[in-house]
Amino acid sequence: MTIAIGDRLPEATFKEKTADGIVDVGADSLFAGKTVVLFAVPGAFTPTCSLNHLPGYLENRDAILARGVDEIAVVSVNDPHVMGAWSEQSGGRGKIRFLADGNGAFTKAVGLDIDLSGGMMGTRSKRYSMLVKDGVVKSLDVEDSPGKATVSAAATMLDHLSA
């Protein structure tokens, strides 16, 4: 069952590569009492993710935060080393949180997993964005194809935040 607007996010633990090493990030600490934009990508360093989806959030970071968002995070079914390298290469370190859902536990729990075995990627996350307030989903935009980043783009999120 796919998570829906009005649902509370499940408890989960992400991994994040920091200057002090790899740390656990619990969903409760990430979302409790905060407004968070969370977007997901099928894979770090993949073309649509690196050339379109992530850059849009980096370019619109200040505008998103100015609309009452406390934090922006990207999650992918990748390991924390890959997510850490992507944060460095993209210029996103310190601007957006890069969260690893290495085994896809969170992705499966919210029902947004996709089988990309045909492209040699295994089980990954669908591409989506959501606005989360105090752990509750307020908006959810899921792409119909992993190669598109339109409905889950930063511009769409800005529209939600302006409404």
Rank of each mutant, 00 (worst) to 15 (best):
M1Q: 07
I3P: 07
I3M: 13
I5M: 05
R8S: 10
L9P: 03
L9G: 06
F14D: 10
K15T: 05
K15M: 09
E16P: 02
E16F: 00
A19D: 15
G21Q: 02
D24N: 15
V25C: 04
G26I: 00
A27D: 04
D28S: 14
D28L: 02
S29I: 07
L30D: 10
F31N: 11
F31V: 07
F31Q: 07
A32G: 12
A32S: 14
G33F: 06
T35Y: 02
V36K: 02
V36T: 05
V37R: 01
L38K: 02
P42D: 13
P42T: 08
P42F: 03
A44L: 02
F45S: 05
T46W: 03
T48Y: 06
C49K: 12
N52C: 11
H53L: 06
L54F: 06
P55I: 03
Y57Q: 09
E59T: 11
E59P: 01
E59K: 15
R61H: 15
D62W: 01
D62G: 08
D62N: 12
L65A: 08
L65P: 07
L65M: 13
E71W: 03
I72K: 09
I72W: 07
A73Y: 02
V74D: 08
V75K: 03
V77D: 09
P80D: 02
H81E: 14
M83C: 07
W86K: 08
E88Q: 12
Q89M: 15
Q89K: 13
Q89R: 09
S90K: 11
S90Y: 10
S90H: 09
G91H: 03
G91S: 04
G92R: 09
G92V: 08
G94P: 08
G94M: 08
G94Y: 05
G94R: 08
G94N: 11
R97D: 10
F98P: 03
L99D: 13
A100W: 11
A100C: 10
G104N: 09
F106Q: 06
T107Q: 06
T107G: 13
T107I: 03
T107R: 03
K108T: 11
G111H: 00
L112G: 14
L112R: 15
L116S: 11
G119M: 14
G122L: 02
R124E: 05
R124N: 10
S129V: 04
M130G: 08
M130I: 03
M130R: 08
V132P: 12
K133C: 10
D134G: 13
D134P: 07
G135L: 03
V137L: 12
L140G: 05
V142E: 08
V142W: 01
V142D: 04
D144T: 15
G147E: 13
G147C: 03
G147W: 04
K148A: 14
A149K: 04
A149R: 06
T150Y: 06
S152E: 05
A155Y: 02
A155R: 11
D159K: 14
L161D: 09
S162G: 13
A163T: 06
